[in-house]
Nucleic acid binder design. Structure first.
Lengths: 121, 121
DNA sequence: GTGGTCACTTACCCATAGTAAGTCACTAAC
DNA sequence: GTTAGTGACTTACTATGGGTAAGTGACCAC
């Protein structure tokens, strides 16, 4: 992806259609982390929440139903792992995969962006 | 949130250091760019699309209705500007604000992440 | 006077999000 | 031995938002 302005030929007869591989990957990545609750869940786990109830408690406004759904998706995307512990009330432990942790890390510039442009409006 | 990785431990152990204000800003940022079509629209504009119809053409699957809606939101968020040109069929020109361009730039690591973990399971 | 352009709106439907309550397997208390 | 509680979910239901299609209005060209 080239987010730089095409200063050389700003307005040619070029096809500006965005469907190359890199772009599609970018869009799916950003919509994956941007999907409601996903980044919050990942962040909660990164912060130390490991169990279902801990994640619900950590992410403000997140409901059981949506958490269960999102966890399935995130696990399917390979961002976290699910491990069932056969304790007396069954416990389930969620952890970030290296891939998931790396994803969170690559969102760091977004935090800086938020600080840089603290919205006064 | 400080996802910066102190070279000693490349793992995610220091992500726990999160201040809630920072965290909320992060979540709103990520959900802003992650909201369906938003990043595609910003990307299209960054790549040279300036008019409504150009953006619709550039972003695959995007409809008029949603574009109009998203453009309002993005303008309200200060990520782009809207300028009406009183030509014969009226034209409207959209451009990224510095803030919007900076946002796209700070998503660059996400592109790298997508390349790094290229296997979709 | 039919058709075309541009930047939207409006109308409608359906998928998903949100909220609340239920389930299962078990244990501890009354 | 009925009641209550735990953890991790499901199920049921409603509300919100997205997708598709068609309409609008100011203009012009044929």
């Amino acid at each position: 992806m080239t987010t730089t302005q095409p200063s050389a030929h700003p307005r040619d007869t070029d096809i500006h259609r965005i469907n190359d591989d890199e772009c599609r990957r970018f869009l799916s990545s950003v919509e994956l982390v941007g999907k409601r609750w996903n980044s919050g869940i990942l962040l909660a786990i990164a912060r130390g929440a490991t169990r279902f109830s801990e994640i619900v408690a950590a992410v403000d406004g997140l409901s059981d139903r949506l958490l269960a759904q999102r966890l399935k998706e995130l696990e399917a995307s390979g961002l976290l792992t699910r491990e069932v512990i056969a304790s007396i009330p069954v416990q389930v432990r969620y952890e970030l995969t290296p891939r998931g942790a790396d994803l969170l890390g690559s969102l760091q510039p977004l935090v800086s962006w938020g600080q840089r442009w603290t919205d006064p409006s």
